[in-house]
Every structure is written in structure tokens, then in C-alpha cells.
Design a protein around this nucleic acid. Structure first.
Lengths: 346, 346
DNA sequence: CCTGGCACTCCAGGCGCCGGAGTGCCAAGT
DNA sequence: ACTTGGCACTCCGGCGCCTGGAGTGCCAGG
């Protein structure tokens, strides 16, 4: 019972099913792949594979279809991630190199991923709790309003406008704000965002009593901005691609789109995938079908990779039918993640 | 030939077809609506309506279905926009009142529209070329970098980071930037964004020669920011709703999603609808089916309304199958537009 | 352990059939 | 000049039937 050949059979089944979308039978298998044995032998192997839960038949006397477990084994041990061609690599680089600011990078990346994989793409903004405060600015913009600007070392910028209601003379406002600006930068710069938020009360305590109320108003807004900077954000694209391969989603297509719009769900998924220790080389992580059933994404597979410094800043990836071409998808995700990381490194 | 009754028949056909999704025949029509005549009479009317192009039959001996032209007549002259219930109005208000900044308003609005109409919703950011500059800030953030912040009176904020390459002594940087800040605010505040962009060269000309190169670098970045502020942005939601009523889109569902992702297409559509002088009371405008064929949105209808000051700031609306419930959809779009305008007025 | 043969299963799709819903038209009624 | 009932006609949609083909499991022999 050559275990090796059975694996070859499983691989052939997955590849064939992915490309034809039809249950694959023993006869076709030996015709299309060099297995060197007769259909009857293959049938025996298939019976074992079915017993072990790697494949299944839709109904008696039909061909076999890989199960989620079968796909899992395939990506973990059988698939060889095909390297991308030089031309493709160059295209990726050229497309991403034109980006200006962070928003632009994220936007281009998600479109690029969607178009080269022909599936739905997801990119999470680099931020997480690892980001640190780079600069805080407090600007008096006429009247009793002030503008707060918060810049993190991941390139993210948050701003808030505060209109002060406290009893402070108009003339005192500018010096008060300038003072706050100095204190804040001294206290917060190069702290992590979450840390910085916890330090705000300490800053407030050092402000002289008469101006304390106004300072509190400003700090409340800043706290708001820091919280927003902690908040994860995602961008998606290529949902039309899901529809195109729509026959692969019996009935769930609607719920898939819903999940995609519910950014909270996506973020949780990305989070979980980041924690998967099974994530292979290059930070690639794959979720298959029912593995994320709880999220309303049964029948879908997700391939993601970390990106950014040490692949820890955030994740990006694609989402498609369980029956997807894992090797090429994984290659594309990995390549894009690398180039984006490189660009962000500047 | 009572023209009046024929219109009543058309209205009944539209309403029946919208609610049943099935071609409607003369017999059913007299049963379900109080028309006070016999089926044979209705048949005569229907023959005329078909002759005039308002209805059509999918095949001989089937019921009638409204054509695009029929829907058009319906919305223009036959439909009575049902006012929303007090409870619904309160719900809308409550949902929007919690919003913090502009992004939050837009985000909540688009989700709200999608959920109450059960269709796809689109909200364009208020900006357009009407927005004016409220404040420009130039901040020195350590080293040779400066942060530019641009605020418009529509609440939009753009920021850019510039790293200077010109030959300017480190010590000269702060005063140079402060000087620029003053000049820029003097020249640009309360100008329209497009106007402001054209004024930049004038500002540059007044900078003393030795610092001219550095100033140009800063102004280039600001020009960039102003251009971005001019750029239209849209947000969409509720694409899953389109899939749910998927049977109404024979084959085009994919292209509809594509169009939705191509923000450029949407913006052009919004633009065109804003120019439609047929836009009825309350700034409502409706596009039906093939009227926007060129955009890949055949079989789709779009209902939008302007919102913001004088309904001129931007547009919002929903997009769904041609066979949609126009009266309630129009009512919902109108109500939401009003509340958003009210909130933005502050 | 592989292989050819064989009997069995079962879906997919083509065919024919009919009922029902709908139409157009006409002649008669008001 | 409309409206109406009657009537013949059309045609889709669904149902049942059937058959061909692809696939399987099992067995006995190499």
C-alpha cells in the first residue's frame, strides 16, 4: 500500500477538480496524469482516501471531489508554490512603485491582488498596537477651535477638531495650546499608541489648575484620535470576481458578500490567521472552507500573508471558492506581500 | 378611449409586477385592483400601451411586463412617493445623530441607506469644487521634514509629509516654514480649492530667492493635497442585497459589481444625474435601465438625491434592479438626504 | 499487490405530453 | 363609440419517462 502513490492520486484529484470543476473518476485520472497503474488500482486508492476523509463523492457512482480535509493536506504537504515569472514580478513592482501616500499604497495593493488572482482581495491597514507616536500637533485655527494632528510611525495620520467650551480667555488660548503641544510631544513621542493613551491622564495632571478644564477637552479629543489609530481598517476589492465563479457558491454568495462588508468579521479572521502557527514559510496562512464556518464563510478559502516589518504590521490576502488554485494564489499573495513590505520599509 | 384609465392600468401593471415578479395578465389585474371593467377591456388598453412602448410581453400568450419607458412614465407621473412613517424617521435620525466626524457620517449614511432600502447604496463625499479652504498648517516635524495639513469648510482634511532636499540650513527651516504658513493662510483661506491651487505660483513668487527652492518643494506637496481634496470620493455598501434579488439580473450581476467598484464610473453617473434637469422635487433623480446602458448598468435603476447645502454639495442614493419599488425607495433616499443635510449644516 | 472483467447504480439530458394562463379578435349589447 | 362575453389559438412550464454514459465496488486470476 504505497502511501506515496495515494498522495500522488490525491494531488491529481485536487488539480484535476480545480481545473475542470467536475468530479473526477478513476479512468480520466490515469489518462490525464502519469500514474503508471490501471484504473482499478486507482479505485482502491480512492476508496482508502475516501475512508480517511480526504475525498468524497457527491452521490453514488459519481467521481470524487476533494473535501476540506483533502485540500488541507494538499496545501500543507503536496502543493509546490509556483514561483512567479519575472515578467509578472516586474508588473507588480511597476504597479506599486507609483504609489504616493499610505492610502494610495493600500488602494493599489488591493486592486492588484484582486486582478492578478481574479478573486476578492483584502488588505488590512498597517497599524496594530505596534505603531508608535511620531508627532503630535496642536494648532489654533481661529475662534475657539483647535486642530489636533496625530502622526504614527506607520504613516497613519489622524486629526480632530475641538471647539472649546471651557472658560478661558481668548487671549490665553494660543499659549495654552502651545504649552500643551510641548507637553504632549515630550510625553508621547515614540511611545506605542496604546501606551500613549494611558499616559494622557498624567499629562493632564501637570497642567495648572485654571487651564485644566480646557486641557481636558483637548486631551479627550486626542484620546479619541489615539483610539481611532488603534482601530483596524481594511479595504476590499474584486467582489465581482466572486460572482464570476459564482457556480461554486451554491447559496452562500450573499452571505460571503455580507461578511466582506462587515469589516469586523474580516479583521477577526485576519487576526486569527496571524495567530495560526501553521503559517508556512513567508508568513503564508491558509484557511479552508469549514475551518472558518463560524464566520459565515463556509465554502470559501482565504489565503493571507503578513506584510510590513517582520511581517508583523498587518495582513493582506485573497478570498475565493474552496475550489481555488492554491499554488498560484499563494505565490501571488506572497509576492505582493513582499513588494509591499519593501515599499513600506522606506 | 379614456386615457386616464389606461394610465391606471399601467400603474397597476407596474405595482403588480414589482410585487410578484411575474408577467401580469388582464384577468389577474381586474381581480386584484378595482378597475371596474372587464378583462377584455383591459386587454384593449394593454394592446394600446404595448403599441406605445410602455409594456411588452416576454413571448406570445404571456402576461405583460413594464418596459424602461413604462417605468419612466410611472415614476414621472404615476407614482406617489409614500411618506415615511414617524417611527422610520426617528430611526433614521437616531442612527445618524451618533456620528462623530465626516467619515463617520458618510459611513453611517451608506449603511443606513443600504439597510432600509435593501439595495446597494452609494454616498459621494461632500466636496466638489465648491469647497473652500478653511485653514492651512505647516508644521516642522523634526529633521528636514514638514507636515502639511489642509482643512476645507466641508470638513475634509488632507495631509502630506514633505522631506526637503534643497540646500537650506537646518536653522533656517523653522522660520521659513512659519513664514510660508502665514503667506499661505493669507492668500488661500476662504478661496475655493480649485482657485487656491491656481494661486500657489503667486505665493511662490513672493518668497525671497534664497529660500525659493525649499518653498517650491512645500508648495508642490500642497498642490498635491489640494488636488486630492478636489478629487471626488464615494463609498458603497449593501452589495449583498443585489445578490439576494439576483434573479433579476439575468447575467449582468458581475458587471454591476464591477461598475460599483470602479468609482470613476459611479462618479460620472452621479455627475450626470446632478445635471438632469428632470430631477423632481427634493432634488430626486432617477435613472432607469438602459438609460445608463453605456455604463454597464443596463437592467439597473438608480435613485439619487443631492444633499448638503442647497443639495449641491454631493449626491447619495441607491442602486437596484429595474424592477424595484420606486415609491418607497424614493421616499427613503429623500428622507436620508434631508437628515444628512441637516446634520452637515452644523 | 495489481489488473481486467462484470454487474450495478445513478445522474443528466432529451422527448413527449398536457394543462393553464394569456392573448387577439369578433359580434353583440348599451 | 365603448364595453363585454365568447371563442379559438398559442405557447411556456412542469411532469414523467426513458436511455446512455460514466463511475463504482467487488472478485478472481495473475
Amino acid at each position: 500500500m504505497s502511501d506515496e502513490r495515494r498522495m500522488a492520486v490525491l494531488r491529481a484529484i485536487v488539480e484535476d477538480y480545480v481545473s475542470t470543476r467536475e468530479p473526477v473518476g478513476s479512468k480520466n485520472l490515469v489518462e490525464r496524469y502519469q500514474l503508471g497503474v490501471s484504473p482499478a488500482t486507482i479505485r482502491n486508492d480512492m476508496a482508502v482516501l475516501e475512508e480517511e476523509g480526504y475525498i468524497a463523492q457527491p452521490h453514488t457512482s459519481a467521481g470524487r471531489v476533494p473535501t476540506d480535509k483533502g485540500y488541507r493536506l494538499f496545501v500543507d504537504r503536496l502543493a509546490t508554490v509556483k514561483p512567479m515569472s519575472a515578467a509578472e514580478k516586474r508588473a507588480i513592482q511597476a504597479f506599486l512603485d507609483g504609489a504616493a501616500d499610505l492610502d494610495d499604497i493600500v488602494d493599489r495593493t488591493v486592486r492588484l491582488l484582486a486582478s492578478i488572482t481574479r478573486q476578492a482581495a483584502v488588505v488590512q491597514y498597517p497599524s496594530l498596537s505596534r505603531a508608535a507616536v511620531r508627532h503630535v500637533e496642536v494648532i489654533h485655527v481661529g475662534g475657539r477651535s483647535a486642530l489636533l494632528v496625530l502622526i504614527t510611525d506607520t504613516g497613519r495620520v489622524e486629526q480632530r477638531v475641538v471647539t472649546l467650551h471651557s472658560r478661558v480667555a481668548d487671549a490665553e488660548l494660543p499659549p495654552l495650546l502651545a504649552d500643551l503641544r510641548t507637553r504632549l510631544n515630550a510625553a508621547l513621542v515614540s511611545r506605542r499608541v496604546a501606551e500613549a493613551r494611558d499616559l494622557l491622564p498624567g499629562v493632564a495632571d501637570e497642567v495648572p489648575a485654571p487651564q485644566r478644564a480646557a486641557a481636558d477637552e483637548v486631551l479627550a479629543a486626542l484620546r479619541d484620535g489615539l483610539t481611532a489609530a488603534l482601530e483596524e481598517r481594511v479595504v476590499i476589492a474584486g467582489t465581482a470576481n466572486l460572482v464570476r465563479s459564482g457556480t461554486d457558491f451554491p447559496a452562500s454568495l450573499g452571505s460571503v458578500l455580507e461578511a466582506l462588508e462587515e469589516h469586523v468579521v474580516l479583521l477577526r479572521l485576519m487576526q486569527e490567521m496571524a495567530e495560526d502557527q501553521q503559517s508556512g514559510p513567508g508568513g503564508l496562512s491558509v484557511r479552508i472552507g469549514a475551518e472558518n464556518l463560524d464566520l459565515g464563510l463556509a465554502e470559501t478559502s482565504v489565503v493571507t500573508s503578513g506584510y510590513g516589518e517582520g511581517q508583523a504590521l498587518a495582513r493582506l490576502g485573497v478570498l475565493g471558492p474552496t475550489r481555488m488554485d492554491y499554488p498560484t494564489t499563494m505565490a501571488a499573495v506572497r509576492s505582493v506581500a513582499r513588494y509591499v513590505s519593501r515599499i513600506l520599509a522606506q
